[in-house]
């Protein structure tokens, strides 16, 4: 393939490349990267499946079925808080781990390291992107839930705090995996952990429906802390002081995961 004269000649004549360096303002860089991350997530079919399709299918399916007995009251009241927990797990953990793993594999993280966007700026952008996608997920799940008859009770501030701390915790765990494993291994592990925690991690299925032998250990997983915490608030009408236990579990997992990820993360 050759370049025609018009293509070569028309643009950027003598002096056009004279140095005029300078970084954009930090806030603009972070917002630009946030938009880029959100765009990439929404364009990716598999990630949409994990973050939107599966949670909404579970919400609609489990609230209509009597296959699983979930206790007294309308099933949707017990299912919806768990689906919110699953939304956080899918976006902050699975989707972020997979995207970051492949960004490293394709040298995108390395190339970003040469731009004016600092590592702090990149992490800020990734966090904002996760939060932005979650806001969309929560809006959709709450909207569909209402349409299906969900009438949540309890303290919304407590629920939001659980969601935020859960996001921090699962983001750090996702980056921990992506920073250590190869991209394909990250893909496999992040998906497998998603399914395991969905089924047996007390995310959607309440802890007291799990075999007693499992429940004691599962209780200490971040998925259980988030799922049980949200059910305590939104289903049982609890407030902040009723979920101090789950908040503490999320905090400990989060702090440990951040510390390990910061030490082990490889950018290339």
């Amino acid at each position: 393939m050759s370049l025609t004269d018009s293509e070569q000649g028309a643009a950027l004549g003598p002096g056009a490349f004279a140095p005029r360096p300078g970084a954009a303002p930090m806030a603009r860089m972070v917002l630009a990267q946030t938009a880029a991350e959100v765009y990439s997530t929404l364009r990716n079919g598999e990630q949409l499946l994990l973050t939107l399709v599966i949670p909404l299918l579970l919400l609609a399916g489990l609230s209509r079925t009597s296959l699983v007995s979930l206790g007294s009251g309308p099933a949707i009241d017990l299912v919806a808080p768990g689906v919110l927990a699953l939304a956080v797990l899918s976006t902050a953990f699975t989707s972020q781990a997979i995207a970051t793993g492949f960004e490293r594999r394709y040298g995108v993280l390395k190339a970003l390291g040469a731009t004016p966007l600092s590592r702090f700026g990149l992490i800020a952008a990734k966090s904002l992107a996760v939060l932005a996608v979650e806001v969309g997920q929560v809006a959709l799940i709450v909207g569909v839930g209402y349409a299906l008859g969900w009438r949540p009770v309890g303290s919304w501030p407590a629920a939001v705090l659980l969601l935020l701390l859960g996001t921090l915790c699962f983001s750090a765990l996702g980056l921990l995996i992506a920073g250590v494993l190869r991209a394909e291994a990250t893909l496999a592990a992040a998906n497998a952990i998603y399914v395991l925690l969905l089924v047996g991690g007390a995310t959607v299925v309440p802890l007291d429906k799990l075999p007693a032998a499992l429940a004691g250990g599962v209780r200490l997983l971040p998925s259980a802390a988030l799922g049980e915490g949200l059910r305590t608030v939104l289903h049982a009408g609890g407030g902040l002081f009723d979920v101090l236990g789950p908040l503490a579990v999320l905090l400990v997992w989060g702090v440990v995961a951040v510390a390990v990820a910061a030490r082990t993360f490889r950018w290339e």
Partner: peptide, 11 residues
Amino acid sequence: VMLQEGGVWPA
């Protein structure tokens, strides 16, 4: 900086 390998999101 132009890296020898990769650096652009393939999609």
